[in-house]
C-alpha cells in the first residue's frame, strides 16, 4: 500500500520510501522514518496532509505515492 491510498483520519506505519536519497533523508529527518506512525489528515486533491508527531506536514502527491505504508487499526 502507498500513502495516497490511506483514507483521511486513518493511521499508518511507514515501511519504505523509494525516492531519491536527498528527499528520502529529508523525510526521515522530519520524522517519517521506518516504523513511524503517522495519521493522514487530508487526502483529496493536492498534497496529502499528515500528522507526524506533533506537527502537520504536507507532501506532494507524487512523493506520497512513493511512500510504502501499512495500515494500522485502532
Amino acid at each position: 500500500m502507498v500513502l495516497t491510498e490511506i483514507k483521511p483520519n486513518c493511521k499508518c506505519k511507514i515501511k519504505n520510501i523509494s525516492k531519491g536519497q536527498m528527499a528520502t533523508k529529508r523525510l526521515y529527518e522530519l520524522g517519517l522514518n521506518t516504523g513511524a506512525e503517522v495519521k493522514v489528515e487530508k487526502n483529496d486533491f493536492g498534497p496529502v496532509i499528515l500528522r507526524v508527531y506533533g506537527n502537520k506536514l504536507a507532501l506532494g502527491r507524487g512523493l506520497a505515492e512513493q511512500i510504502e505504508v501499512e495500515e494500522v487499526n485502532n
Binding site: R26, L30, P47, N55, L57, L59, G62, L63
Partner: peptide, 11 residues
C-alpha cells in the same frame, strides 16, 4: 527533473 513538495504547516 522531477519536483517534490515537502512542507510543514505550522499551527
Amino acid at each position: 527533473e522531477e519536483t517534490h513538495f515537502i512542507m510543514e504547516l505550522p499551527p
